[in-house]
Write a protein that binds this DNA or RNA. Structure first.
Lengths: 215, 215
DNA sequence: ACATTGCTTGACCGTTTGGTCAAATCGGAC
DNA sequence: GTCCGATTTGACCAAACGGTCAAGCAATGT
């Protein structure tokens, strides 16, 4: 195998300018549509329309609806987990967690569709990413849980179960993206106002950080 | 209008024994299927099958798929909000909130499908219940927010925005139902073990309650 | 100019699915 | 038992949808 090395995934194919543009247009449109309607509710026609092309043309770039979904989901996942992976074992615990929570809340604000896509997938049993959850994600969480447990052992955090702390953070930060409609409905006009998300961040940080400070 | 008073909704119709049983079977099955597949992904055939009857028979009791969905959702909503409505302004704040959080976590454990159904509806823009959210739910939340604000004013809670406190509680408690697949994937075998939910409750309570105690 | 390859689409197909209908069956009142 | 409305269902329909195909169009190298 001298001319072509066999990588772990599809390879070669330098992807022409137009291919790159069209694939991106498709994935962007797909994120919108899948987030709004779920996998089953989304139609290829709507994605194609939003991407500015015909259905057969879209299927020229992705071989099936599921293939698009998988790609969008993968892309979203890695992006979504970046700030979590960056939790620094050597940093100040409260400061590290503050940074992480803030980053995730910011992501929920700037890209709620990514959050909704993921939520939808998991709520329906994670048919596409259950492997990822039990391998990559579990490994990453185990690693970070160890870090948190170390912090607790050093007295830098209140004695709290690391996993449930992580779940609590995920829950609150996702909530502001996934349930934005409910939040807007309940608090009325001030939801869209600038500064609302800063206020939300402050409240969440206040509760969680005070809840885990050593005492 | 002596013989029949015109109520706000459908009335009369004492509902025979068999009607009651069949409607219940349908609604139970529908909760399962809608929670698993979402509105769009659910099929009348599957609901009918689970309810032990044919599709036309199901449509004899509910005039459309949407009608079933609406009914299940309504039923779920009122049940879901009961413990929230019971927050007692005259009780001890921390104790009241502990009771509420505990009750909601217990509901997430015993009836995750109800939670998932609701989450799915809201994530996709609450097409069916947006009216409910902006009227009944908003009124209820405003009322409880006032209570919490009073508690804060009396120094019985740390100065925290009531709305964001409520959202944080909703977020965490829903998370254990909606994302149970992810939780199970991440923490492995011990998820199903007895006592797991007690442990989760303890962790969540520890974080939130310490986070809002007066300081 | 032309051929080759990449890109695009209108028309079409088979399946799934929400919903209808007429006919069959059931169950209680008399 | 007989009757009549309530209940149940097999067969069917129309629309929506995922996916295919063959033919058209554009770009690029020679």
């Amino acid at each position: 195998m001298s001319p072509k090395k066999s990588g772990t995934a599809k390879e070669a194919k330098p992807l022409s300018r137009i291919q790159e543009a069209n694939r991106k247009a498709i994935l962007d449109a797909a994120l919108d549509v899948f987030a709004k309607s779920g996998f089953r509710g989304a139609t290829i026609d709507e994605i194609a329309g939003k991407a500015g092309m015909s259905k057969p043309n879209l299927l020229y770039y992705f071989k099936s609806k599921r293939a698009i979904y998988q790609q969008v989901l993968e892309q979203t996942l890695s992006e979504w987990l970046t700030p979590f992976a960056e939790l620094d074992p050597n940093g100040d615990p409260v400061e590290e967690l503050r940074r992480y929570i803030t980053a995730k809340l910011k992501m929920s604000e700037s890209n709620p569709n990514a959050s909704k896509l993921f939520a939808n997938e998991v709520i329906h049993g994670a048919p596409v990413i259950s492997d990822f959850l039990t391998t990559s994600l579990k490994a990453l969480v185990d690693e970070k849980a160890k870090v948190i447990r170390k912090w607790v052992g050093e007295g830098k955090l209140a004695p709290i179960d690391p996993y449930h702390l992580i779940f609590t953070i995920w829950a609150t930060t996702q909530h502001y993206a996934d349930f934005d409609v409910q939040i807007r409905a309940v608090i009325g006009t001030q939801a869209g106002k600038p500064g609302f998300h800063e206020q939300a961040a402050q409240a969440v940080l206040s509760i969680i950080l005070h809840g885990i400070k050593p005492r």
